[in-house]
Design a protein around this nucleic acid. Structure first.
Lengths: 89, 89
DNA sequence: TAACTATTTAGAAAATTTTCTAAATATCTA
DNA sequence: TAGATATTTAGAAAATTTTCTAAATAGTTA
């Protein structure tokens, strides 16, 4: 995991919205896509960026792929940011 | 201030390093630049991105421009991230 | 005032990102 | 097995980002 990759993933509004959707639990790619005015291919692209950044995990059931928020990376990010504010002197 | 702009600012390694340098206090553009293998123009570009994201403030003294970390935006970011992890159910 | 130092701005090239359409893959169900 | 549904992959166009060189701006000092 790299901070650059993670921050870049978070820099896109659609991707932040996807993460917000996933706060309430896991959701299939299609369900996620239905919240946006974008093609499924584009949603798939955004999901791949979030996946590479390890911000989401996927699991398969029937012919659906479910995505779920991975909070541990979010916590690492918070730690990095906190370190920035804490050690000022 | 927009989260997109702020996360984008943080997605570049040079810009994250600049912020890390500024943890110890304010620093002139030239001093910042001396830590990198980039032209002054490029450093100036990165500083402008950080400034637009409100992650740094500038102040002038003689013919130097000093940059200083603005921690309040960092805290807003942490709040946004915390909200992502907290409300999962 | 003239030359000097610090920094930014302008313009352009190269690289990366975002989006689409069309095609491919994979799984399910009748 | 055949057709239907869900999702991804490939390839290409448009937009954005990063970097450089050269020129401009602004304040300093001799």
């Amino acid at each position: 995991m790299s901070f650059g990759q993670t921050f870049k993933a978070l820099s896109d509004p659609a991707r932040r919205e996807i993460l917000t959707l996933l706060k309430t639990g896991r959701m299939s790619a299609g369900e996620i896509g239905s919240h946006f005015d974008m093609t499924g291919a584009t949603i798939s692209y955004h999901l791949s960026i979030l996946k590479k950044a390890d911000l989401v995990h996927e699991s398969r059931y029937k012919n659906y792929i479910y995505y779920e928020l991975n909070t541990s990376v979010v916590e690492e990010l918070m730690t990095w940011l906190a370190n920035l504010t804490d050690e000022k002197h």
